[in-house]
C-alpha cells in the first residue's frame, strides 16, 4: 500500500474514533472500553494471514504464528462475551420494573 494513502486512512480513522464516542454517557464507559477491546480483536485476521504465510518448514515461525492466532482469537471471543454480558444488563425494559430479585 502507498505510504501516503495509509497516512490518510490513519488520519480519517483517528478522527472517526474520536467523533464516534465523543458523546458517550459515563454509565457506558466500562462497556465501551470493553467493546473497543473486542473490536481490536480483529487482529485475529492479521494473525491468521501471518500464520498462513509462515514457512511450514520453520517450527519457530509456526509456533509464534500459532500463539498469535490463539491470542487474537481469545481477544475477540473473550472481548465479545464480556461486553455482551455487561450490556445485557442495560435492557431498556427494566427501567421501571425495579428490583429483579
Amino acid at each position: 500500500m502507498d505510504g501516503f494513502t495509509a497516512l490518510y486512512i490513519f488520519m480519517l480513522a483517528a478522527f472517526t474514533g474520536y467523533e464516534v464516542i465523543s458523546r458517550v454517557p459515563v454509565i457506558l464507559h466500562t462497556p465501551l472500553m470493553s467493546g473497543s477491546n473486542f473490536i481490536h480483536g480483529v487482529v485475529l485476521i492479521g494473525a491468521m494471514a501471518t500464520l498462513g504465510h509462515a514457512d511450514p518448514e520453520d517450527p519457530l515461525q509456526l509456533l509464534i504464528g500459532f500463539v498469535a492466532v490463539f491470542l487474537g482469537a481469545a481477544n475477540a471471543a473473550g472481548g465479545y462475551i464480556v461486553t455482551e454480558r455487561m450490556l445485557g444488563m442495560f435492557k431498556t425494559g427494566n427501567r421501571k420494573e425495579g428490583g429483579a430479585q
Binding site: G17, I21, I39, H40, V43, G46
Partner: peptide
C-alpha cells in the same frame, strides 16, 4: 499496534479498526 500491523500486512480493515479503537481509547 493493531492499526500499525494492518499497514505492515496491507490490510485496511485492520488499519481502520485498530486506529479507530486507538483514537477512541485515547479519548476515553
Amino acid at each position: 499496534a493493531v492499526g500499525f500491523k494492518g499497514f505492515v500486512l496491507g490490510n485496511p480493515a485492520l488499519i481502520v479498526a485498530g486506529i479507530v479503537v486507538g483514537a477512541s481509547g485515547m479519548l476515553l
